[in-house]
């Protein structure tokens, strides 16, 4: 009963937030609505018994990533209302179509287990020794070690690449100008 009430409350916040992201004209307001959606997602995770995922959702997505969004918005000064004229006319009908396709897929997936496996992982998460966090950690560092390490390598490569692009020294720039 409590779970249902909480689920409905979080669902309303998530949907309103998602609408707010799209409807707000001010990018900062959009980012704030996104935070509301992400936080209610964290609420869903708690309702499903996935505490670690919920904490990660708040720490990584709702705070770090959206704060970086805001940081960029503030630094670049793009926090003015943008004009709504569309440079690419095709965009809107295509976006609408793709959105409908995704929506249909989601609806289709809801009743079918062939793609997602059996529903409700709650029991598996709460049973057995060690808490939720320990079990996730054990899975990551034993069964899924290889994909985990690959993902972290990918992130490091991205960071190093970003730094290398951003930190071109003046001397290299001058050299490239001379070459041109």
């Amino acid at each position: 009963m409590v779970t249902l009430v909480l689920f409905i409350a979080f669902a309303i916040i998530a949907l309103v937030g998602a609408l707010g992201v799209v409807i707000s004209r001010n990018p900062v307001h959009s980012a704030l609505w996104l935070v509301a959606t992400l936080l209610s997602m964290a609420g869903f995770f708690i309702l499903e018994g996935a505490y670690l995922v919920s904490a990660v959702q708040v720490i990584v997505y709702a705070s770090a990533i959206v704060v970086l969004f805001l940081f960029v918005i503030m630094l670049l000064g793009v926090d003015r209302e943008e004009s709504l004229t569309d440079p690419l006319k095709v965009q809107r009908p295509v976006a609408l179509m793709l959105g409908l396709v995704v929506f249909a897929l989601l609806i289709g997936l809801m009743g079918n287990h062939w793609a997602t496996g059996a529903q409700s992982a709650t029991a598996a998460l709460e049973s057995g020794d060690g808490g939720n966090v320990e079990r996730v950690a054990r899975e990551i560092f034993t069964t899924y070690l290889w994909p985990f390490e690959l993902t972290s390598a990918l992130l490091v490569v991205a960071v190093v690449g970003g730094v290398a692009l951003a930190r071109r020294s003046r001397r290299a720039e001058a050299a490239s100008e001379v070459a041109q």
Partner: peptide, 20 residues
């Protein structure tokens, strides 16, 4: 059960107050 992670979550969210 997530204990101390909650602190990290809150200190992350607290940043919004200052920033906004």
């Amino acid at each position: 059960p997530i204990g101390i992670l909650f602190l990290l979550a809150m200190s992350g969210l607290g940043l919004y107050g200052v920033m906004l």
